[in-house]
């Protein structure tokens, strides 16, 4: 199963490392990262492989959400299927 993590918020030091740290701790492999800064708004999209994850999806998503709260960022973790279903026929 693959998931998409999106991070949106004010650019600060250590956003990428914070997210990738949580992935590494849970044995989740990062497949692709894209990031951009639009008018000081940091926007990162990360595609990860959950196949060998050591934690259930909900716990992983909760820990990212907690990081978002701490750093004042909006972090969403969703299964990749949602985007494929919505945007591809």
């Amino acid at each position: 199963m693959r998931a998409v993590i999106t991070v949106v918020g004010k650019d600060t030091v250590g956003i990428l490392s914070g997210v990738s740290d949580i992935c590494a701790k849970n044995n989740i492999n990062i497949i692709e990262v894209s990031q951009s800064i639009l008018q000081e708004l940091f926007c990162m999209i990360m595609l990860v492989d959950m196949e060998k994850s050591s934690v259930p999806f909900a716990d992983f998503s909760d820990s990212l959400k907690a990081l978002g709260k701490e750093k004042n960022l909006q972090i969403h973790t969703m299964q990749e299927d949602v985007f494929n279903a919505m945007h591809h026929v």
Binding site: V4, I45, F83
Partner: peptide, 8 residues
């Protein structure tokens, strides 16, 4: 990867 615009 899925289109960034679609994800956002």
């Amino acid at each position: 990867m899925i289109n960034t615009r679609d994800i956002l």
